[in-house]
């Protein structure tokens, strides 16, 4: 019996999750429900969040914060990476600072942001940007540096202006790196936003998780966590689709298909 490759791929990807769900369900028979609530309870709570606007709006609030933070870090990262790539001397000044930033835990930034800033949204934006900025910068810099010398010389042979060079060569060269950077940072951002909301917000998934902890509601905590996981999965799929369309020029071996 042969399966459609997409169906097979779906089953392969789901196998691990199904095993975990089954193990959880078995555990729910042996442990109190406040520790291991039944899968159907978690599922019901998850669906309820999705269909109840006040709850769904909390998820969207968190999603908005993730996007705002990632967009800010992407813009700043690009503004740093391109000059560093073009003028390598700048690197020795900026790179150590970015490495230093990378070493600071997200929680420390939460404390700093609470002390420094008043507005909740600005605090969270600051935390999101500062924690994802180094990774964005390094990934964009790597993509810039992978630019082909041959293609650069060929483009320069037409004597383009700086803007034209950026548009016809630099942007298409760094697009794959940009997409990879978004995919990687999306997961990081989802983790950081929860920490930021947990401590310093009055809404969003992180705030709801804090409430579930206070209520000792494991099913609720898991349902809110699942919202975030679903969000990351959906956005990852959207990025993959964009990637497939933008990088459609890449040859694919029949063996790899």
């Amino acid at each position: 019996m042969t399966f459609n490759p997409r169906v097979r791929q779906f089953f392969q990807a789901s196998a691990g999750t199904l095993v975990l769900v089954a193990a959880w369900q078995i555990a729910s028979y042996f442990f109190p429900h406040y520790l291991f609530p039944p899968v159907q309870d978690i599922f019901a709570r998850t669906v309820r969040i999705l269909v109840t606007w006040p709850e769904l709006s909390q998820v969207l609030e968190t999603a908005g914060r993730i996007f705002a933070g990632l967009t800010g870090a992407f813009i700043l990262g690009s503004l740093l990476a391109i000059p560093i790539g073009r003028y390598p001397r700048i690197e020795s000044y900026i790179t150590p600072f970015l490495v230093f930033l990378q070493g600071i835990p997200a929680l420390s930034w939460v404390i700093v942001a609470i002390i420094w800033f008043h507005g909740t949204e600005f605090r969270i934006l600051f935390i999101m940007v500062i924690t994802t900025l180094p990774a964005f910068t390094f990934q964009l810099l790597d993509s810039y540096r992978s630019m082909s010398k041959d293609l650069f010389e060929m483009t320069m042979s037409f004597r383009p202006s700086g803007w034209k060079l950026f548009r016809v060569l630099i942007v298409p060269t760094i697009v794959p790196g940009i997409l990879t950077a978004w995919k990687i940072n999306l997961g990081n951002a989802a983790r950081v936003v929860v920490v930021a909301e947990l401590v310093g917000a009055t809404g969003g998934v992180g705030y709801e998780l804090l409430r579930q902890q206070q209520l000792f509601d494991m099913a609720g905590a898991l349902a809110w966590t699942i919202q975030l996981v679903l969000f990351v999965l959906v956005v990852q799929q959207v990025i993959v689709m964009i990637e497939k369309w933008l990088l459609r020029y890449r040859p694919i071996s029949e063996r790899a298909a």
Binding site: D150, T155, S157, F158, V168, L247
Partner: peptide, 29 residues
Amino acid sequence: RGKIGIVFQNDRLMPWRSAIDNVVLGLEI
């Protein structure tokens, strides 16, 4: 600009551009 054309040892085509878009490159610049 536009006065010197160069043909290199290897084709140096931009992989993300179709044949016609590669030819258009210089004109676009």
